[in-house]
Design a protein around this nucleic acid. Structure first.
Lengths: 197, 197
DNA sequence: TACAGTTTTGAACGAGTGTTCAATTATAGG
DNA sequence: CCTATAATTGAACACTCGTTCAAAACTGTA
């Protein structure tokens, strides 16, 4: 296996992520990949094994980055719920120039592939479970901080969050209508605050 | 242009729909298409023009079928809201054996393709607008029937419906968790019923 | 039955696919 | 500086892709 230094590896994964995220797994050819990450086929195959193996590595890299963002920008903040809401607003609505697609990469991959790509789908599903678990952690901490009612069903709320984020991002790609999404996002946090289970 | 009889044309579009829906636009090769609809390349190109033109024709066929289903199963029913809710439950949750993918084909296509496939994306966006308009019509009729409050913002509710359906179907493909979806679906109809704007 | 017009066929085209591997270049230890 | 090991290169492989088109088969009219 090619001994790419850690710094280069991160850079390569970042570039591969951007391309895969924009064009999807099937829509990205290995030649595009080659020129994008500036590696020749032999090196890529020595380092990552195959197109699908590289893609899975990239997916992990993507999820890792998301997880770290929540870790640094939400956990440890004075008002966890407030910080989470801010981050969510940014992730869903901000027209971040360096985001290659309006879709979440996990959801885009889940949508794109059928069950003939089991390995990739399995990894996507597992990563989505991780994300949901992190959401639940955030909500739990908000409960402890008293910004969410103590009887809130945290797991159900985390699932609702997932469903809505998926819907919002996709709807945004369809229509570009940010206003309704902004409204729904606010609404969702109101609902969580008044939930009685 | 090849003069396919109307019956054959419907059958061809149906088969092409099933394949495209299952494997996506990029994931479907013209050879698979050829054997699936039992036409030779020359005939396909005479009748439809290109792979992408056939795909767009198939998308229209797909949306047309959905529209007709709402027309016959919802409009004209004694309780439109009730009928709509039943149909929605079926469309989102039923493990219909002859549905080639858990995803909505429009959403799957929207997710899969980037802006380099403008023609297809434009058509998908337009069809999604149509669907939303039909939802609004249904809700309006429910208002007239008195099953929804007269001050309900029908357009906003239709958007919310869209966002949720997209989220539900995708979440279902990710986790298979029907329980939470069923709960959220019920919840959504409760919210519409008590809305105050 | 003969013929003009239409439709269908399937071989073929050129470009693009993921992947491999012998040859070359770079690296590090003595 | 020399050598053994590791990493990189890029040409090449065996397919597959979307698409075309001359030839064959079919169609309906006279």
């Amino acid at each position: 296996m090619a001994n790419i230094s850690k710094f280069d590896r991160q850079e390569v994964l970042e570039k591969a992520k951007n391309l895969f995220w924009e064009k999807g797994y099937l829509g990205t050819s290995t030649r595009e990949l080659q020129s994008s990450i500036d590696m020749r086929p032999g090196s890529i195959y020595a380092a990552f094994g195959s197109k699908s193996a590289l893609f899975i590595t990239v997916l992990n890299h993507y999820a890792q980055a998301l997880s770290e963002q929540i870790q640094t920008q939400v956990f440890g903040q004075a008002d966890v719920l407030q910080a989470f809401r801010t981050l969510l607003r940014e992730l869903v609505l901000s027209p971040n120039a360096n985001r290659p697609s309006e879709m979440c990469m996990l959801v885009k991959t889940l949508s794109e592939l059928d069950e003939s790509h089991v390995e990739i789908l399995t990894q996507v599903r597992s990563l989505l479970v991780n994300v949901e678990a992190i959401f639940a952690q955030v909500l739990n901490q908000a409960k402890e901080q008293g910004t969410l009612p103590s009887d809130l069903d945290v797991n159900a709320a985390a699932k609702t969050l997932q469903v809505n984020i998926i819907g919002w991002r996709t709807y945004l790609k369809a229509t570009g209508d940010k206003e309704i999404i902004e409204h729904q996002l606010a609404q969702l946090f109101v609902q969580m605050a008044v939930s009685r289970h």
